[in-house]
Amino acid sequence: MSFPYDLILFDLDGTLIETAPEIADAVNDTLKQLGLPTVTQQQVNHWIGHGTRELLIQALAFVTHTPADTVRRDPGFAEKEAVFGGHYQKRCGTRSHLYPHVREALVALRSAGVKLVVMTNKEGRYTETVLNAHQMAPLFDLVISGDTFAVKKPNPMGIDESLKRFGATRDRTLFVGDSSIDIATARNGGLAVWAMPYGYNMGEPIAASQPDRVIPDFSALTSLLTGFEPGHREQQTP
């Protein structure tokens, strides 16, 4: 059977790469330098999704028992964010890894002529560092980060830009992610959306967000390339 998509957009953290451990390391490096209590890995997992800036805000709000809006308005927040940035740049690639079948699936899709896009809420400087740490950047035709535009996911601007850039139609474009933010982004952009069950999603089961499919790993994408119907390997959502 012919491959049904000309363009696929992928979330980054929790979809392509397991990054939570080194993000937690960087957050705790920052908190320690600021003389503040540290947070747990599970807390960091639940805060992932809105970009590292927002994650740091949530961590600072939690450990200082301060409303997140107060942290955002803090004149000293930019300095704290810079401290985090230094730690995160050093941590990138130290405890992250690609999920199963990701690299081989991306290589196969590119070989078949499918255009591939990363669309993440992670800030561009960190997105670039993470992709380069895993030699992933050459596999993508476009990278859209949380600060590429004035808005970020779940706003569909990145989808619209990708469709325009590659001349793709919505019915032949797929979004692959791991969170309710990704599901909402795809819906807002009029795309089909497949979800990975191993990501973060603020601690909630991804099936509850009702993607079109929950697939066990990236081999479901390459199964379509070879003409093998992967229906027996995926969980269909209600």
Rank of each mutant, 00 (worst) to 15 (best):
I23A: 12
S96C: 04
L60F: 09
R103G: 06
R110P: 00
H46V: 12
L224K: 13
A207T: 08
G177I: 03
A105F: 08
T129Y: 01
T30M: 08
Q135V: 04
I144L: 10
P67K: 12
Q33W: 02
P205Q: 15
T64Y: 01
T169C: 10
V117Y: 03
L225F: 15
S209F: 14
L31W: 02
K115E: 02
S179A: 13
E128L: 13
R125P: 01
F149I: 12
D212M: 04
Q135K: 07
V114Q: 03
D217G: 15
G158D: 07
V102T: 12
A112M: 13
D29P: 07
E104T: 11
L16K: 00
A208F: 12
G51R: 04
L116G: 05
A186Y: 02
K122T: 02
L174Q: 06
E18W: 01
Q89R: 14
N188F: 01
L16F: 02
N201R: 04
R213N: 12
G158I: 01
D182Y: 02
G158R: 10
D141Q: 05
P211V: 14
T120F: 00
E81T: 09
L163N: 06
F228N: 09
L16V: 03
A108F: 10
F10E: 03
D182K: 04
A24M: 13
L109M: 06
S209R: 07
V44G: 08
L9N: 02
L31S: 05
V63E: 02
N188I: 06
Y200H: 12
L225K: 11
L60Y: 02
D6S: 09
D11M: 06
A105G: 15
Q89V: 12
T173K: 01
G199V: 05
I144Q: 06
A26Y: 06
I17P: 00
W194E: 07
K164I: 05
V63T: 12
Q33H: 11
S180G: 15
